[in-house]
């Protein structure tokens, strides 16, 4: 096999694992929120704020895991804001998402300015490539523990949706607010909690961006990953497991540009950088339909109406 092709493929494998992790967390968070019947488009802002908070806390405390936790908390604050604002009557959740996107990004840039220069301790990774002599493969398989946390989270969510009382409550609220009311559930409370928890996950995804890969904090850190992750949930048809698979696919697409660069192909760099956006759009076109709402879509989603 052509050696440079192999290099590209290995780089894409490593890239898929690295790039997919933030997608995975944001998509799982959005999956939970959408299962309860609301869309939070603001996760792009949550991702950026999470990245900033994680970096700052890791810098001040010296513990990257404290940073991850703080990022999750910052994400839940934004999620709680979204959740409570959308509980008001006549408020459009998509518009609130856009506002939260601007607000989260603004707050992150505002407080993040002093942290662009200093180096914060980053998250360590687990070397899984020890069996191989190929250094490229070894570095590709240096996997961050958050990747496995994400997969465990997806399994846990899938199990919880199917088998627990809480899972049933979230699904009921998401599918039919009327049915949930008849069961005596507080629709707004369930959605508030789901959005808050979803914000936590998205914040953790942001922590991965600044503490693992790319592994530094700057204003161009996230450019639409949060938004793509929201689109990805539609593609994954609201299943946590499929969210993970879709995130890996997106990770691989996002890794095309840097991988080609690693073997010296720089032409069309901007085109390959745009690959994830184009892929997202194509996937949205392929999975949507004008005449029926997507299969498995929660019935209460504003997109469904």
């Amino acid at each position: 096999m052509n050696a440079s092709l192999l290099t590209v493929l290995i780089a894409m494998l490593g890239g898929a694992i690295r790039v997919s992790t933030p997608f995975m967390f944001v998509a799982l968070g959005e999956c939970l929120t959408e299962k309860s019947g609301r869309v939070n488009l603001g996760l792009e802002g949550t991702l950026v704020l999470g990245a900033m908070v994680a970096y700052a806390i890791s810098y001040h405390t010296g513990s990257p895991w404290a940073g991850v936790f703080a990022a999750g908390c910052a994400g839940s604050v934004l999620g709680a804001m979204h959740g409570s604002i959308c509980s008001l009557k006549k408020v459009n959740d998509v518009a609130v998402g856009i506002a939260m996107m601007l607000f989260g990004t603004g707050v992150a840039f505002f407080f993040g300015k002093p942290y662009i220069q200093p180096a914060a301790p980053r998250l360590g990774s687990i070397p899984l490539g020890g069996f191989s002599d190929n250094s490229a493969l070894r570095s590709a398989l240096d996997v961050n523990p958050l990747f496995f946390v994400g997969i465990l989270m997806a399994l846990l969510m899938a199990w919880a949706f199917a088998n627990t009382r809480w899972g049933l409550i979230v699904r009921t609220v998401g599918d039919s607010a009327a049915a949930a009311l008849a069961m005596g559930l507080s629709v707004n409370l369930v959605r508030f909690l789901s959005t808050t928890a979803g914000g936590f996950l998205a914040g953790v995804g942001g922590a991965f961006l600044s503490l693992s890969y790319p592994g530094s904090w700057n204003q161009g850190l996230s450019s639409g990953q949060g938004l793509m992750a929201v689109a990805l949930v539609i593609f994954a048809r609201w299943s946590p497991i499929r969210c993970v698979i879709a995130a890996l696919l997106f990770g691989a697409a996002g890794a095309i540009g840097p991988s080609l660069q690693s073997v010296g192909i720089t032409q069309g760099y901007y085109f390959f950088n745009a690959a994830p956006y184009i892929l997202t759009l194509i996937i949205m076109i392929a999975t949507s339909s004008a005449t029926r709402s997507a299969r498995d879509m929660p019935g209460e989603l504003s997109m469904a109406k």
Binding site: L41, V94, I98, S223, G224, L227, M228, V230, A231, I234, G268, Y270, F271, N273, A274, Y277, I278, T280, L281, M284, I285, S288, S289, A290, T291, S293, M303
Partner: peptide
């Protein structure tokens, strides 16, 4: 068009197209 013909969420697609548009210009 995608909204009408394929039911694609216009908010997400228009923002995606913004990123793509900026990438085209940079290219």
């Amino acid at each position: 068009y995608l909204r009408y013909a394929r039911g694609v969420n216009e908010t997400i697609s228009s923002l995606l197209l913004t990123y793509i548009g900026i990438a085209i210009m940079n290219f």
